[in-house]
Amino acid sequence: MKRILFAALVLAAAVPALVTGVVAADGQPGPRVSSGPHPITLDVPAEVTNREIVDDVKRVRNYADQPPLIPHAIRDYQIDLNINKCLTCHDRRNTEGSQAPMVSVTHFQDRDGQTLGTVSPRRYFCTQCHVPQTDAKPIVGNRFRDFDAVLGAGPAKEGAK
């Protein structure tokens, strides 16, 4: 009797494992990773890497205070306590030689709106807000319409450019 009970218990305990095992083998819903539609147990080939857009052409901003996209390469650009590579071109005193657009005055303001003499600490890490682009297609659709489109003044625009 004891033995039968034991066997029954073992079986009962094994059922969920068996079921998930079968399900996973089928490629049916198992545990999922948030980044993909497949169970984590499945090997999938890596996606193609996309090319960076580094043509030096400024991109349209979708709204007035959007941080503009970076139109050039920034590989290995160091931003730390020792040096901010971006500022070697974009800082006020360096723009004559580099011919880069100067960081706007908002970058000199602290959170109380005080304009400081140098770039404010909260704007030091440029890539927090400014990012380069690649030629990747958007992963999800986007129905953003810019201000002019909403007012009907400009051409309708689907998705951020």
């Binding site: 290995d76 160091q78 306590l81 020792n82 040096i83 590579k85 070697t88 071109c89 005193r93 360096n94 004559e96 030689g97 580099s98």
Partner: peptide, 22 residues
């Protein structure tokens, strides 16, 4: 500078394109 290694503290080292302008 710094194309092959991380840079040290660069205070006072002007980038090549500004030295002449300043």
């Amino acid at each position: 500078k710094g194309i092959a290694h991380r840079l040290p503290d660069m205070t006072g080292v002007e980038p090549g394109w500004t030295a002449s302008a300043i």
